[in-house]
Amino acid sequence: MKPDVGRLLEVAVGHLMGETVPMIGRAYGHSVYEQSNVGVLGMMLLAVRHEHERAAARRVEENQELRRMFARAGTVVGAGDVSERLAAAAEAEDTDLTVSALEESNAELRGLLIELHAAVEEIDSPEARTLEEEIWRELAASTRRRALPTLGDT
């Protein structure tokens, strides 16, 4: 689909910030609520541009990482309900690549990650500590995947 979504949003932000925001300022003053609100809208559209580009990729990557981890985690937490659900989640695949479907499976996997993390914290074994470190690395990676550099990410 041309023009690209990213280009369309760039132009839209250009109109908003270059024309609409100054126009509101000239008409109503430069500190009015509406001017600030349109400025935030411009920032949000830049973020949307960034998110649009990566939305499916980051969810697919994260879901794959979580499933790989879950496949190895069952032996650490031992037999039981959590272990069975970890195994089932590890074997699943994302067949619907729409962002909403990927988001839904990501939420299920992250919910299971919380359960796994809490369970591992209670286990006193070297394997548990290794898995715990792996979980923290994944949580750091998940934070990096969600960063929005266009909004001044630090």
């Binding site: 919380i114 993390h117 934070t143």
Partner: peptide
Amino acid sequence: CPQPIARA
């Protein structure tokens, strides 16, 4: 959506 970092 789940908040695994805050929950930890």
